[in-house]
Design a protein around this nucleic acid. Structure first.
Lengths: 204, 204
DNA sequence: ATTTGTGAACAGTTTCACAGCG
DNA sequence: CGCTGTGAAACTGTTCACAAAT
């Protein structure tokens, strides 16, 4: 089954909203208040979910969460990730706890400077980038977090695609060209700021 | 003039692509190769741009870049930004050079721990979060980079909205509810990974 | 009474395909 | 002749509005 892109993004975010929602039931109207999304849209999104048809009382939060996790495969299987580029951003992700209670797990880091890979400490091994293909295949890593210099981004993306990576979280402002088998999420600070300001009509 | 959302995002990215493109001319077909976007779509996006109608030779890269920067207001006026939350991610952004040659400028940092704001060194002042409203108004800050703990995200977002912030780059996985006057860009690592994996049909 | 599920209308975006310009 | 600009078609996503369910 194919989940429409905008629906997928909403449901992923909704799962986080529900994880800190303490009531037992929730209505589509209440979700609209919490998120800003039209309630009819939410009900339509839920058509994809495997839940009992209810009414009058809204949805059971527990049941919703189980159905969301199942559809989005959030806790289905452990998904191994690596970080490429251990500059400031890469290092901060190395020590971040953000994905700690998720099904994603960091298992390797890479940097072209052997100095860095040797000096930095981490709960998982750090390798020179020359070993990228070897480690990704041996460890069966599916997702890559790209925090390299701009000039490195596209060459590394190509290598990642070649060894079968499924998705790249791209912290650089570069447009990565990869085969359709590889998904990319662009989350660069600079382009995010530019997207914000290009939207604001009133200059000065 | 209102720029359609998807067009805006493409043009912002395209500007980065062109900034490292060395030829003098470029065709919509070539841009398709570099980005994966359909060439007709690119030509349609360019209808918004203030450029000479040309043909047969493609577009002049210089002229394109000038028109893009004008439309997106990329170098029009200096846009002041602040970071809220000086944990690992906030600190790495404090020292990042990513936005250095852009029209965005970091001018303040905030953290609820006075310890951090006093111990960390930075090229611009760090304040306790109690001074958020005061500093944002005095400095006329328009954009905020949110790197606080999840529980803090919504309360801070409300305060930011109240003091007239135009846009928030949200590094947390929380859905921020703010008035329509405030734009939000969500770039959390966890939700990005979830978006990637929810898209991949083959589990296990 | 309240809230869901959904057909039908609407709105937004992309692609096709080709006339016309340089 | 190659490439742009664009009407028209196709597609995708959202909102409306109301019958059906509890």
């Amino acid at each position: 089954m194919e989940i429409p892109e905008p629906t997928k993004r909403r449901l992923v975010l909704l799962e986080h909203v529900l994880s800190s929602y303490s009531e037992k039931n929730i209505t589509s109207q209440k979700i609209q208040e919490l998120t800003g999304w039209n309630s009819a849209l939410i009900r339509r999104d839920f058509l994809l979910l495997d839940i009992k048809r209810g009414a009058s009382n809204g949805y059971k939060v527990d049941e919703l969460r189980v159905a969301l996790e199942k559809l989005l495969q959030l806790h289905a299987n452990q998904k191994k990730c690596c970080i490429i580029g251990l500059g400031g951003m890469g290092q901060s992700l190395l020590y971040s706890t953000e994905i700690e209670n998720s099904s994603f797990k960091l298992v390797a880091g890479f940097d072209s400077s052997v100095n860095r890979t040797e000096v930095l400490s981490s709960r998982f091994p750090l390798h020179p980038t020359t070993l990228l293909e070897k480690v990704i295949k041996e460890e069966d890593i599916h997702y890559a977090i790209l925090t390299v210099e701009n000039a490195e981004a596209q060459p590394i993306a190509r290598r990642l695609a070649q060894c079968g990576i499924k998705g790249i979280v791209n912290y650089t402002p570069c447009v990565l060209t990869v085969p359709k088998t590889v998904k990319v999420e662009n989350i660069s600070l600079l382009t995010s700021l530019e997207n914000l300001s290009a939207g604001c009509s009133d200059s000065l």
